[in-house]
Simulated scan of single mutants.
Amino acid sequence: MTSFDPHSTRLSANVSADSNGACPHCHQPIKQRESAGDFQTTLDKLFPNAYGLEEFVFETKQTLVPKGFYPHVNTLVCVGLCRDEITSPFEEEIEAMWGQAFICGSLGGMLFCGKTGFFAAHHHAPSNGFFIYYCFTHIAIDHEGNVGAVYRTRSGMNEKTTACGALAAFTSEIASNKLNLTFNEDDIEMSMLKKHIVRKTNLSTDPTKAPNLFEVTMAAYETITMDLERHVKRDAEEFKDRQYALFTGVQIHGPNGSDHCWLGKASLLIKGEFSPLVLSANPTSQVQTGASTKSH
């Protein structure tokens, strides 16, 4: 008998192994470790006040509707997530709430659609239109609290994989002193990801002070936020009657196909001025409320 609660996405650290010593949910061997290393503890430590996806998207709607952003009526939503298929529950929640989205994300959630991509999106709404941007990088935390580890059971894989794979590869290059910042036409997004994050942030590329995956992920979040604000600000200078809501942060893939998101920054841009945007409610439960139950 395990301590797994079917109404929660948390897998307790004292979950019992089956007769073969494997986790009954992911079928992987269970390591004997302290309970402080479980998913919930790691989530709370690295991403305090994380939301379930459904809860987060709902709260953004509750916050924005009183400000004139109406789903399926006057608002264009733009989504920037990693190409990884396990980010799709986030996009699905957003589109279910706001309608079809303009997709502007690349590997790691980077916004490499650039000026042309944003120009296209901004011409899909009137000069006095409303825009919402959800631009998030991503990371995984498994039931043992291992950062970067995720099971993709939906594709038939039983072994652990990595998320974000691109950011993990970047992290590994730095640690192994093999970082290559040369532009590669056969690997455009990955070569740009590394070069852009290094140029935009204070991320260490010294292998003796190599960042971990969490630190690289946060550098990606910072870069995405800066890029988004720059592109949107440019549009606002031309279309002064438009209103923009910007949300950036980190999507977190948890055990049993659960998904959460950490909101790093939320802001409104009206008449060329940014102002903080506070959601109508804080997350009521980082694990139980609104988390996706779809398997990866």
Score class of each variant (00 low, 15 high):
34 E>R: 12
283 P>H: 05
54 E>C: 09
24 P>A: 05
74 N>D: 02
142 D>Y: 03
260 H>K: 05
20 N>M: 08
95 E>C: 06
76 L>F: 09
206 D>F: 15
191 S>W: 03
152 R>Q: 07
95 E>V: 11
94 I>D: 01
272 G>H: 07
288 Q>G: 15
213 L>Y: 03
174 I>V: 06
23 C>G: 01
121 A>M: 09
105 G>K: 01
224 I>R: 04
74 N>E: 02
131 F>D: 00
256 N>K: 06
57 V>W: 00
288 Q>T: 14
51 Y>A: 01
269 L>W: 08
24 P>Q: 07
240 K>G: 11
135 C>I: 07
284 T>E: 13
142 D>F: 02
187 D>N: 02
85 E>I: 13
159 E>F: 12
168 A>N: 04
206 D>K: 12
4 F>S: 15
286 Q>S: 04
225 T>H: 11
120 A>T: 04
85 E>A: 09
248 T>L: 00
16 S>V: 14
93 E>V: 14
178 K>Q: 15
7 H>P: 09
67 K>T: 12
19 S>G: 13
143 H>S: 15
80 G>F: 07
158 N>F: 12
71 P>Q: 01
128 N>M: 06
111 L>R: 01
85 E>L: 15
276 P>K: 06
51 Y>P: 01
17 A>N: 05
8 S>Q: 04
168 A>E: 06
199 R>D: 14
72 H>C: 12
69 F>Y: 03
263 L>M: 07
197 I>L: 13
180 N>I: 08
225 T>A: 14
193 L>I: 09
123 H>S: 10
201 T>H: 01
7 H>E: 13
127 S>Q: 09
190 M>H: 08
143 H>A: 08
143 H>R: 13
107 L>I: 06
219 A>I: 00
189 E>R: 14
198 V>L: 04
244 Y>A: 02
135 C>L: 10
144 E>Q: 07
268 L>R: 02
259 D>F: 12
148 G>D: 00
96 A>C: 14
145 G>V: 02
204 S>C: 03
173 E>R: 14
118 F>N: 01
93 E>L: 14
271 K>F: 02
51 Y>M: 05
275 S>C: 06
